[in-house]
C-alpha cells in the first residue's frame, strides 16, 4: 500500500475529505443540541412575558457561581462560534473541491438525490444570513424596533413586522431541510448507517427537522395572528 505520512490527528482529520465531514458532523451535532434547547426555551413564550423574561435572565445567571454572570452563555457562544467557523470552513472547502472535480458541467442537468441533499449549501448560506440578522435583531437589538425592551418585548416587536416574521418562517423551512438531510448525513458520516437502518434513519431525521422548524415557526405565526402580544 502507498505510504502516507504520519501526521497529528488535526492534520490527519482536516487532510481528508471524510475528515472534514467528521468535523461537519460533530459541529452539526452541537448545533442540533443547541437548536433543540433553544426551541424548548422559546416555547416558554406561551407561558407569558414574565416566565419568558425570567427564563432569559436565568440563562445569564446559570452557573454564575462558577463562571460569573453570562459565563455559561459566553462559553456556549464561543463553542457555537468555533463550530460555525469549522462547519463553514469544511463546507466551503468541500464546495471548492466539488467545483474543481467537475470543470465541465452537463448540458442536460440531472436531478438525482433529494431536494434537501442538493440544497444543503445554499440552505446553509440562508441559515447563516438569518443567524446574523437574528443576532442583530433579538440579541443585540440593533435592528429591533424596541432595542431597549426585554426579551419578550423585543420578540413581539420584531414579529409585528410581517416581513420579518415571514423571513423567519422561510429561514425555519431552510433549517428544517438542513436538519432533515444533515442529521441523517451526520449519522452516515460517523459510520452509523446501514442498509437495514437507512430508511428509518432518514425518516427520523425528517421528523426531527420538521418538529424543530414547527417549534420555532409557531412563535412568529402566533404573533402575526395576535395569539402572543
Amino acid at each position: 500500500m502507498v505510504l502516507t505520512q504520519q501526521r497529528n490527528i488535526v492534520t490527519r482529520t482536516w487532510g481528508s475529505s471524510v475528515g472534514k465531514k467528521f468535523v461537519m458532523a460533530v459541529t452539526g451535532v452541537i448545533f442540533l443540541l443547541y437548536v433543540i434547547a433553544h426551541m424548548i426555551g422559546n416555547l416558554k413564550i406561551f407561558f407569558g412575558q414574565e416566565t419568558f423574561d425570567a427564563y432569559s435572565e436565568h440563562l445569564r445567571t446559570l452557573g454564575a457561581e462558577i463562571f460569573g454572570y453570562e459565563g455559561v452563555l459566553w462559553i456556549i457562544r464561543v463553542v457555537l462560534l468555533a463550530s460555525v467557523v469549522l462547519h463553514m470552513a469544511a463546507a466551503f472547502s468541500l464546495w471548492y473541491k466539488a467545483k474543481r472535480a467537475r470543470p465541465v458541467g452537463y448540458q442536460h442537468k440531472g436531478h438525482q438525490g433529494s431536494y434537501a441533499a442538493r440544497t444543503m449549501r445554499w440552505g446553509g448560506v440562508i441559515i447563516a444570513l438569518f443567524v446574523i440578522w437574528h443576532i442583530l435583531d433579538l440579541t443585540l437589538g440593533t435592528v429591533n424596533p424596541d432595542p431597549a425592551g426585554g426579551a419578550y418585548a423585543k420578540l413581539v416587536a420584531s414579529f409585528d413586522r410581517p416581513i420579518v416574521a415571514i423571513f423567519y418562517i422561510v429561514a425555519m423551512v431552510a433549517l428544517s431541510f438542513h436538519i432533515s438531510h444533515g442529521l441523517w448525513s451526520g449519522i452516515q458520516t460517523l459510520g452509523g448507517n446501514s442498509a437495514v437502518k437507512q430508511h428509518a434513519l432518514k425518516s427520523f431525521s425528517i421528523v426531527v427537522g420538521v418538529v424543530i422548524a414547527v417549534g420555532f415557526a409557531i412563535i412568529p405565526v402566533s404573533v402575526m395572528f395576535g395569539l402572543v402580544r
Binding site: 465531514k21 466539488a98 452516515q188 459510520g191 437507512q198
Partner: peptide, 23 residues
C-alpha cells in the same frame, strides 16, 4: 470531489450498491 451524502450515486448505480457502504 468529497462526499456529502447526497445519494445520487446509489440512485444511478446499475448494480444497486447500497449507499450505506459509504457509512
Amino acid at each position: 470531489g468529497g462526499c456529502t451524502n447526497v445519494g445520487a450515486c446509489a440512485e444511478v448505480c446499475p448494480k444497486g450498491i447500497p449507499l450505506a457502504s459509504i457509512s
